[in-house]
């Protein structure tokens, strides 16, 4: 029994190390996010002739710990825009609230046309660029999927530095390495978008999700997928990759120390 009241209810120094009181210090320079904490992995998306498909799994990781397994990383903004979030989850939640208040202000008057995906991408890119310029970045990589002002498919990205680009297919994080090459096989350029229908695009994106599940350690087989077309947004938040199994791994011979 320790007789110092300050010690009661506290982690033992000899076990957990000394507590760093400097965290309570209020003076000193303002500290901003130095690194993401709870994170979501890839977001993948592909255009097709009538719209866009976008998908992200439902996992939020805390380092290598699979911390939350039912997180919605696709956010429907309105009937023509979905935003996919990769990166820090708390920054995602902040952006979600920001989009909510934007939507409310947009709907004060009903006559004006709704914000489309292009508008929203411009807005979000400026938010991201402003925050990086303030040295206070929102640690996310966003994909904005939907329709532009002419009801044509729109897909663009914005990251924590405020960098923006658009492409017929996009993938963030690990997906940029693993999914993007697969997606580009079917959609190499803008012209090819016209030749791809919804079914093909959905199949393609699901295939990309499968590859990511197998090869990205911070991923899982529960995911959300959304299809945005002129008729609106079709969002499913609890999809499961079918028939996935690591059974085959046991049969593999010849890797590493296992030689026969």
């Amino acid at each position: 029994m320790n007789h110092l009241p300050q010690a009661w209810g506290r982690p033992r120094d000899d076990v957990y190390g000394a507590y760093d009181h400097s965290h309570f210090q209020t003076s000193g320079p303002i500290q901003h996010t130095q690194s993401p904490i709870v994170t979501g992995t890839s977001v993948v998306a592909a255009k097709f002739k009538d719209g866009v498909v976008i998908a992200a799994d439902n996992l939020a990781s805390y380092g290598s710990l699979a911390r939350f397994t039912d997180v919605k990383r696709l956010r429907k903004f309105n009937d023509q825009v979905v935003v996919g979030f990769g990166g820090d989850v708390s920054d995602m939640q902040y952006l979600d609230r920001l989009l909510n208040s934007l939507d409310i202000r947009e709907n004060y008057s009903s006559s004006e046309t709704a914000l489309n995906a292009k508008n929203l991408h411009t807005y979000l890119a400026k938010v991201m660029y402003k925050r990086r310029s303030d040295f206070n970045p929102l640690w996310n990589h966003l994909l904005i999927a939907g329709l532009d002002g002419e009801d044509k498919p729109f897909l663009a990205s914005a990251d924590l530095l405020g960098t923006t680009f658009t492409s017929p297919t996009l993938a963030t994080g690990f997906g940029a390495h693993l999914a993007q090459p697969i997606l580009r096989r079917t959609l190499p350029d803008d012209a090819s978008v016209e030749d791809v229908d919804q079914e093909t695009a959905v199949k393609l994106v699901k295939e990309a999700m499968k590859v990511l599940f197998y090869r990205d350690a911070r991923s899982m087989d529960r995911y959300s997928i959304a299809v945005i077309t002129k008729t609106g947004v079709e969002l499913h938040e609890d999809e499961k990759l079918e028939n996935q199994s690591w059974q085959f791994a046991e049969q593999i011979r010849g890797y590493g120390t296992q030689v026969n």
């Binding site: 320790n2 110092l4 300050q6 010690a7 033992r12 120094d13 000899d14 000394a18 507590y19 760093d20 009181h21 400097s22 210090q25 003076s27 000193g28 320079p29 901003h32 996010t33 130095q34 690194s35 990086r132 310029s133 040295f135 970045p137 530095l161 960098t163």
Partner: peptide, 26 residues
């Protein structure tokens, strides 16, 4: 010994230059 060494724990923010972990360019 028990070693609840509160006095040994840092109580002030470390002095000197702080480095940002964020590089704003690419």
């Amino acid at each position: 010994g028990p070693g609840y060494s509160f006095t040994q724990t840092p109580r002030a923010a470390p002095s000197g230059e702080r480095q940002h972990g964020f590089y704003p360019y690419t």
